[in-house]
């Protein structure tokens, strides 16, 4: 049986761990709520943006702007959105593993796959495996802003227009609910036009100011920004959700562990008392003799 003092020490150490995990869970819950509000607030703009882009691009056709024109996908750019911090369960490992698999499986299909990585965790993963990263974005997730999304969008759109890659995909954790995040690969651009079911020309076309082409040229990069912004927000919400779940089960494990150790400790104490009693009794017996 382990000695009493060692067990006591373990219990108090597990207790303080439990305190930390419990606090982290609460913090994540609060942050999650804020992140969810952010997603909801950003939704009307994103929806409207998609409507307008679909309407305008549908009328203009896919030749109107390079971002709409699909070309033979020889070179792929992949934006991987992970988190800066750990302690959030399989949030990062699930994603990076999926990306790693994707890279191995699709290496033959593309001439070149360029990686862009958001988040320290993803950066560390690929660096350890010596997979080159074109550009990394660290510390953007603390407070996701429009400017961060714009910077990332500029890099991707710029590279695409310059012909450095022919297709851009994004890999991220989609936020389903606080306890469920799903790894997703999404094609970002060239932008695939959803056919609205109506033949173009069915509706009255807009008057444009300045011109349809110029509007598309500003609208489309902004649309890409909006998509990236949404993904960043979802990823942050997912991170907090994952951390909340992870910390919740850590707290539960600590509770179980404390119960088990307390039992062990009490047994050890009981055993000591019994031994002492036996010694006293047998000592007394010996004196009687």
């Amino acid at each position: 049986m382990a000695n009493l003092r060692a067990i006591r020490k373990r219990v108090s150490s597990v207790k303080s761990t439990q305190q930390i995990t419990r606090a982290m869970k609460m913090v994540s819950a609060a942050k999650l709520r804020r992140a969810q509000d952010g997603i909801n607030a950003a939704r009307p703009y994103a929806r409207k943006m998609r409507e307008v882009v679909t309407a305008v691009a549908g009328r203009a056709g896919s030749d109107a702007h390079p971002l709409l024109t699909s070309r033979e996908a020889k070179k792929l750019a992949l934006l991987v959105v992970t988190s800066d911090r750990g302690l959030c369960g399989s949030f990062n490992s699930g994603l990076t593993r999926a990306v790693h698999r994707f890279l191995n499986e699709h290496r033959g299909e593309y001439e070149e796959i360029t990686l862009f990585v958001v988040g320290r965790k993803g950066r560390d993963f690929f660096r350890r495996r010596e997979i080159p990263i074109r550009k990394e974005y660290l510390g953007v997730l603390g407070s996701v802003s429009r400017n961060h999304a714009a910077a990332i969008a500029n890099d991707l759109v710029g590279g695409f227009l310059a012909g450095e890659f022919d297709e851009v995909q994004i890999a991220f954790n989609e936020f389903r609910s606080a306890i469920s995040q799903v790894v997703r690969f999404e094609k970002m651009f060239p932008i695939a036009l959803e056919s609205s079911g109506k033949a173009p020309g069915d509706e009255v076309d807009y008057l444009y100011e300045p011109s349809r082409e110029e509007i598309l040229a500003t609208l489309l990069p902004k649309y890409v920004q909006t998509m990236i912004f949404r993904v960043l927000l979802e990823s942050v919400a997912g991170e907090h959700g994952a951390r909340m779940t992870a910390m919740d089960s850590a707290t539960n494990n600590a509770v179980d562990m404390i119960a088990r150790l307390t039992l062990q400790m009490n047994r050890a104490r009981q055993a000591t008392i019994t031994t002492e009693l036996t010694e006293i009794v047998s000592g007394a017996e010996a004196l009687k003799g």
Binding site: V52, V204, E209, I215
Partner: peptide, 9 residues
């Protein structure tokens, strides 16, 4: 009200 369809920067 009743403005024609219009899209502007």
């Amino acid at each position: 009200p009743e403005h024609t369809q219009f899209l502007a920067i």
